[in-house]
Design a binder for these strands. Sequence first.
DNA 1: TTAAACAAGTTTATAAAATAAACCAAATTA
DNA 2: TAATTTGGTTTATTTTATAAACTTGTTTAA
Lengths: 96, 96
Amino acid sequence: MFPTLDPLLHSELRLAVMSLLVSTEEAEFPYIKEQTEATAGNLSVQIDKLSAAGYIEVEKTFKGKKPCTICRITPTGLKAFEDYIQALKTYLNIGK
Amino acid sequence: MFPTLDPLLHSELRLAVMSLLVSTEEAEFPYIKEQTEATAGNLSVQIDKLSAAGYIEVEKTFKGKKPCTICRITPTGLKAFEDYIQALKTYLNIGK
DNA sequence: TTAAACAAGTTTATAAAATAAACCAAATTA
DNA sequence: TAATTTGGTTTATTTTATAAACTTGTTTAA
């Protein structure tokens, strides 16, 4: 009846991060922080979780002399995001 | 950018309960339990929270000699559910 | 007729999650 | 060169979800 909602995506901040990455395909930590209005600590933790699950990939480089963390969505992450949307629709009574 | 997702609705079980009530307008505890596949304890707690928020109303009656708990969605609850859906759409990149 | 099992929940204890506070290192600015 | 800022990470705390244990009353079987 009601499919499980992927707990990794069913989180306000992680969902926002994924949402950003779906449309941009690449975003830097400070940009994500600004767009989501999250604290750096919270964002760091949630990015780790998405990364550990293979939903995003995280590249640590430098921008001039400053460290720069770049995030991208992976095919696995995109698939999970799409599946999550489908599952949600069951709950939202869309298309009934 | 990303609106807050009502924490009362952003919960798998509570969302499932609300989803059922939106379509049925009235449901008994055992029916909700069966449809959501929740444990009685978890369901009881979540129904309390929805009730405390005024999202549903809970009527305790008897069906013959057996206690019978009936749940109905309230106008407040329906509004919250609809607002939640709108907020979610921001995250799901629907209609962009 | 009473002991065992069942129904319908509730209360409480535990596990998991979200979140922010505190922290660190390097770079910039005053 | 001391203070501030940038770009984060680690850790501690709070909140939340969830199930286990319990309660109350009912039906069933012996």
